[in-house]
C-alpha cells in the first residue's frame, strides 16, 4: 500500500511549497489513499485544481493533472468530463477559490449533478496571498482585509451545495485523516456531484492573527469540535453551539448529467 502511494506521488516534485503546520499535505495524503482504494486505473484518474495553496496539490500527484485558473476548476472539469465521461475527476479547490470567485461554477456543477468529486480544502482564509477573508471565514475572525474582524457572514458550503442540487455532501478534517480518507472514498463511489469539505489548519495566515495557537492547537480544536451526524441527532441545539457536523451530511440520488446527455443522443 505504501509503495502504491509512492506511485501516485511525484516524489521528485517534493518537498511541497506549503508552510509548516499546513493541513494541505494531510488532506492530499487522504485523497491519494482514497483513490488507491477505489481501484481505479491510474490512467483514468484526473486531478483538476484551481488557484491557491491547496490547488498546488495537483502538481504533486502522479496522474493527468490540470491546474487551471482561479475559481474555474469545475468549469474546466465539466468540459473534460463531458468530452470523456469515462474519466474519474477529482477537483481540488480552496475555500476562496471554490466559494467566492468560483461560486457560480460551484452551484451550477451541483445543479447539473455532473459526476465530479469536488474536494474543498477549507482553511477559512486566502493563504497564498497572505491572509484575506474568504466567504468561509467565520464572522468576527480577523484577516488582513478585515483587521477588526470580518462583519460578513460565512456560507455553510454543504448547505449551499445541497440547495443547488448536489447529491452528496460530506465534511471531514485534517485532524481525523482516516475518516477523511473514508469520506473521500464514499464521495468517489457516489454517482453525481459530490462535495467534500475538508477543514484544514492554516496556522500562519489565519491561526496566528486570530490567536488560535499553532498547528497542534488548531488540529486539536478541529477534532474536539467535530460531531458526527449520529451523535448530533441525539444532542440539544444548545449543546451543538460551536460544534461542527462531520461525516456524510447528505446523500441522495438524481440523474447524472454526462450519462443523461449521452443517453439522450443515443450513445450511452
Amino acid at each position: 500500500m505504501e509503495q502504491l502511494t509512492q506511485d501516485y506521488l511525484r516524489t521528485k516534485k517534493l518537498p511541497h511549497i506549503w508552510c509548516p503546520g499546513c493541513g494541505n499535505g494531510i488532506v492530499t495524503a487522504a485523497l491519494v489513499r482514497a483513490i488507491e482504494r477505489t481501484g481505479y486505473d491510474q490512467s483514468e484518474v484526473v486531478i483538476v485544481s484551481g488557484i491557491g495553496c491547496s490547488s498546488r496539490a495537483a502538481g504533486y500527484l502522479n496522474f493527468n493533472t490540470l491546474h487551471t485558473t482561479h475559481g474555474r476548476a469545475l468549469a474546466f472539469a465539466t468540459g473534460l468530463k463531458m468530452a470523456r465521461p469515462e474519466l474519474k475527476l477529482f477537483v481540488i479547490m480552496g475555500d476562496g477559490d471554490c466559494s467566492a470567485i468560483g461560486g457560480n461554477h460551484f452551484i451550477h456543477a451541483a445543479r447539473r449533478n455532473i459526476d465530479l468529486n469536488a474536494v474543498i480544502i477549507n482553511n477559512h482564509i486566502y493563504g497564498m496571498t497572505g491572509g484575506q477573508h474568504s466567504p468561509l471565514t467565520p464572522t468576527g475572525m480577523k484577516a488582513t482585509t478585515a483587521p477588526g474582524g470580518t462583519l460578513e457572514r460565512a456560507f455553510d458550503l454543504l448547505e449551499l451545495a445541497r440547495g443547488a442540487g448536489a447529491t452528496f455532501g460530506a465534511r471531514g478534517n485534517a485532524a481525523q485523516p482516516r475518516q477523511l480518507e473514508q469520506l473521500i472514498l464514499r464521495a468517489a463511489n457516489h454517482k453525481g456531484f459530490s462535495v467534500l469539505e475538508a477543514l484544514s489548519p492554516c496556522p500562519i495566515a489565519y491561526g496566528r492573527r486570530n490567536k488560535l495557537g499553532g498547528a497542534v492547537e488548531m488540529l486539536r480544536e478541529m477534532k474536539d469540535s467535530a460531531v458526527s451526524m449520529e451523535k448530533a441527532s441525539g444532542m440539544e441545539p444548545e449543546e451543538l453551539e460551536g460544534k461542527t457536523l462531520s461525516g456524510v451530511i447528505f446523500s441522495t440520488e438524481a440523474p447524472e448529467f454526462s450519462e443523461e446527455y449521452y443517453r439522450s443522443i443515443g450513445k450511452a
Binding site: 487551471t68 474555474r72 468549469a75 474546466f76 468540459g79 473534460l80 468530452a83 461554477h105
Partner: peptide, 16 residues
Amino acid sequence: EDEIASMAAVIGASIG
C-alpha cells in the same frame, strides 16, 4: 453558466 465557464469547458474538452 457564463462566458468564463464556456471558455474553460472548451479547454477542458480539448484536453480530453
